[in-house]
């Protein structure tokens, strides 16, 4: 976790660069038309330089799977809009390097430079978090809350609302996603990252994992 903080300064420097160079098309309305009036002679075969793509241009391609502005419509696709930028950067870089297992995200993340992934993360992080509207099972929620209070809340504070370091928001997340993540962690056991989570999750039953997913979904 410390390494993340150490990386922060480098990350924000990268982001700043992206923001400055891209000129952000989505904010174009602020610019008067005259701003474009530079002479743009198109002379022969000057090879076009690969332009910098704006954060919105890059991040809007995510919405086909993760919903508009990352507010997923369900069921197993996680809500990502409004998650902490540092967490998103870490996850995307891990997908790119292959360090983090995935079905499809690894294939997609490899299509972007590190700076582009940081730009995507910054755009997604800037969006409002929209909790899943799903109705949760009361009994499962109660069972999940007990487990949470006992062994999860020191990192996932305030019902999973607090996002610090590389702790993602869980409150209001789609339960199918949380459950899949927990199943994955359960299977990995001690090899789940972070290990202390793996060691706790590996001891839970299927019903308890389901209860955890419902509990976090209930905390809007």
């Amino acid at each position: 976790m410390k390494k993340i903080i150490q990386q922060l300064s480098a990350i924000s420097a990268g982001l700043l660069m992206v923001w400055v160079v891209s000129g952000c098309a989505s904010q174009s309305s602020a610019q008067p038309p005259a701003a474009a009036a530079k002479p743009a002679e198109t002379k022969v075969a000057a090879k076009p330089k690969q332009g910098v793509r704006s954060p919105s241009m890059l991040a809007n391609t995510c919405a086909g799977c993760h919903g508009t502005n990352g507010a997923s419509a369900g069921d197993i696709m996680p809500i990502i809009g409004g998650m902490e930028q540092e967490y998103l950067v870490e996850v995307l870089l891990e997908y790119k390097s292959g360090e983090r297992d995935s079905t499809i995200m690894g294939r997609i993340a490899k299509g972007y430079s590190e700076n582009e992934l940081k730009a995507i993360a910054s755009f997604i992080a800037d969006q409002p978090w929209v909790s899943s509207p799903i109705k949760t099972d009361k009994k499962l929620v109660a069972m999940g809350k007990k487990i949470h209070d006992k062994q999860c809340k020191t990192c996932h504070e305030d019902g999973g609302r607090v996002q610090e370091d590389d702790t993602p928001r869980l409150a209001g997340q789609w339960p199918d996603f949380t459950l899949q993540y927990l199943h994955d962690c359960h299977a990995k056991g001690r090899r789940c990252s972070p290990r202390k989570m793996g060691m706790r999750v590996m001891k839970l039953s299927d019903q308890e994992l389901k209860a955890m997913a419902h509990y976090y979904a209930s905390e809007k």
Partner: peptide, 11 residues
Amino acid sequence: NGQEPGEPSYV
């Protein structure tokens, strides 16, 4: 808005 279209990205 009188601007040049930005660099595209597609998936």
